[in-house]
């Protein structure tokens, strides 16, 4: 385990920690591409983590836990969709509320599940990891090379124009937000089934916010999200490896600062850092 293995070890850790971050980020990017920001990632993730753990514990089937977690994440996201799309409430407030609601509800329902070992777990580097990379590529293709992608992006950029062309803005947004929830729920499942197979209240410990930051600094690009998630995973791990030589107080900020700097510095490409034009704005038919 000496220097020769540094690179390999770091890559493995980057992939392991990067997987849940990537899943969450891809979901958030999709939702934001449709013009709906969802600050409820943390809440959806933790509900997914609890659901996955409980189902896997009861059935002995971690895969069943994963599926249920995705469904729970999607359902939680529909709550945000209903409030922010149908009721046209402030997206930021609704998302924050979802985070608080998710953390609180999971804490309440999770009572008694802490301190229980899980016998049937998922491996850390697994089909989920590759699926995350696959989804990233697929989303990139869909966003930039299919009609669906044009519809999604136009709803996020100019919903009035899309509406005029006959696109059902609300439906597209609902689907995008629900997809975001499914991905966040699955990310939570990865945490409680593979990354650290156990339930503890508050176990996401802020990962939902990292996801939102990477979604923004990846400039809403699925492939850049892969780079961001892996970079964050690698730097987070290295921040502990390097403690033997560098002051730990400095290293604590490193993964956050470097990931954001790196993503921001390389964002000057063809799409730049521009957010979807209608991001955060509820759409009202006929209004501009």
């Amino acid at each position: 385990m000496e220097e020769g293995n540094w690179i390999l070890a770091t890559v493995i850790r980057a992939v392991a920690l990067g997987t849940p971050i990537l899943w969450g980020t891809l979901g958030e990017i999709t939702a934001e591409r449709s013009g709906v920001i969802n600050l409820g990632v943390e809440g959806m993730m933790i509900l997914g983590a609890l659901a996955a753990f409980v189902v896997a514990h009861l059935t002995g089937q971690p895969t069943a836990g994963l599926v249920v977690a995705a469904a729970v994440g999607g359902a939680a996201a529909l709550l945000h969709a209903f409030i922010s799309i149908t009721l046209r409430a402030n997206q930021y407030v609704s998302g924050l509320a979802l985070t608080m609601f998710g953390l609180g509800l999971a804490g309440l329902l999770g009572r008694g599940w802490e301190g229980r070992p899980l016998l049937d777990t998922l491996p850390e580097i697994s089909a989920l990891t590759y699926a995350g990379l696959g989804v990233a590529v697929a989303l990139w293709v869909v966003f930039y090379h299919t009609r669906w992608g044009i519809v999604l992006r136009s709803v996020g950029e100019m919903p009035a124009a899309a509406d005029a062309l006959g696109v059902n803005v609300a439906l597209v947004r609902y689907l995008a937000v629900a997809f975001g929830g499914v991905m966040a729920g699955a990310a939570g499942a990865f945490l409680s089934l593979a990354y650290r197979p156990a339930w503890t209240e508050g176990m996401t410990a802020g990962m939902g916010w990292i996801v939102i930051a990477i979604a923004i600094f990846a400039a809403w690009d699925p492939l850049r999200a892969v780079a961001g998630a892996l970079l964050f995973g690698a730097l987070f791990h290295l921040s502990f490896r390097l403690q033997a030589w560098v002051a730990p107080e400095l290293l604590k900020m490193m993964p956050f600062a470097f990931t954001i700097l790196a993503l921001a510095a390389t964002a000057g490409g063809r799409r730049g850092l521009g957010a979807p034009e209608a991001l955060g704005t509820p759409y009202v038919t006929g209004e501009r």
Binding site: M1, E2, A9, R13, R196, G202, F236, H237, F240, P248
Partner: peptide, 26 residues
């Protein structure tokens, strides 16, 4: 005794990566 600090009372991801770092250090 090799030490790594995580600067939190509760953070599973940090505890995990700190442990991995210590394993890598032998």
């Amino acid at each position: 005794v090799h030490v790594r600090w995580i600067f939190e009372w509760f953070n599973p991801a940090a505890a995990k990566e700190a442990t991995e770092a210590l394993i890598a250090a032998g």
